[in-house]
Design a binder for these strands. Sequence first.
DNA 1: TCTGGGGTCCTAGGACCC
DNA 2: TCTGGGGTCCTAGGACCC
Length: 415
Amino acid sequence: MSKWYPKNGRVIFHLDMNSFYASVEMAYNPKLKGKPLAIAGNPEERRGIIVTSSYEARAKGVKTTMPLWQAKRLCPELLVMRPNFERYRKASSEMFKMMAEITPYVQPVSIDEGYMDVSHCHHLGSPLDIAKGLQFRIKNDLDLPCSIGIAPNKFLAKMASDMQKPMGLTVLRKRDLKTKLWPLAIEEMYGVGQKTADKLQNVGIHKIGDLVDANTFELKRILGINGERLQQRAKGEDTSPVDPDAIYDFKSIGNSETLREDTVDDSTLTMLLRKLSRKVATRLARKEVVGQTVQIMIRYYNRKTITRSITKSTYLSSETDIFSVATDLFELHWNGEPIRLLGVTVQGLIEKSQVAEQLDLFRYQEQAGNEALHEVVEQLTTKYGKNPFQSFTSSVDKDQPRTSFQKDFLDDFRK
DNA sequence: TCTGGGGTCCTAGGACCC
DNA sequence: TCTGGGGTCCTAGGACCC
């Protein structure tokens, strides 16, 4: 049975839904099938952008993040819908359910993609058969297309799922790297964006394969720790585990909004801050977490963006508290120029239930600490006839020379 | 008529402590 | 009179991904 599985090593799937939002809409309304369809953030707004588009739209040059007006110019017959997140969430949870029926080692990465570790699924057949079955079910039951990459680690699985779309099944083994991975352009590599691609091209690295032979010190000099990691990945090495719990320890919750028009109007900006604080508070409450740091983001008319944050000594989660801190930060740091976008984020999150525990622990430590300190001071006072700490304070305050009493104490102390 | 909104991770400097 | 080095926390910005 285990003939298909490596003796040492893992079998990882990366499942990626193809043009997910558009595909879900087509599953709901089959009349949309075969037509150029785009999902746009806010179709009525000037500043709407393309979130996803069907393959028919892509054929006309429509791309994700393209401003809507530009997409319509390229493809005048483009059908545009606004996102319907309820539908997408439902389809997503059905898809993850099907994955979880195969193995509990499922790591959701976003609404439409996830990793699976099927290293121990011998009883279900070969990896390729498992992947085929999963892809078939998702297509048959949900009417949604997906691509699956099969590889010995997450990075290669991710690259593999990208190689054939839509409805691709791609196996990428170590022995396939030379022909399937290394010839790809460097900007195709997961983890390499425009900036990194520019830096790498400047030193003659144009293909993923070029990374393999590159000098590691040189890479580290240019890209920091990421340079080393990219090289490891290019060599096909990635030990990061499939972590089903990764989605639970989120680190921040934030909301931001681009205004219809750039503005300096105080009441508009205050209202928006209030609205964003409320949204964040609602989401914190739903997840039953609280946070210690509040961050605001201001994007000005010229797209220059600043963030300002402050960490409080207590945890907060209410709309009132978040709004109050956000307003303070805003008033302190806004330079008065027209604003395009505002954002409010709460970071340093912990579970609500942990706050009480922490508070108890803190009280305990404080109390224990105070008791211990009192004891020490008492002992010292007995020994020297008076509290040495007090005289230290006064001598520093008044800039007086040390008394012989303090010298004694210090000598004693340093022993 | 340019370019959304949700995140994570890394870096780097300064404060502060030991 | 001049002085180390490591660790952690906080803050701001940048790169990347979906």
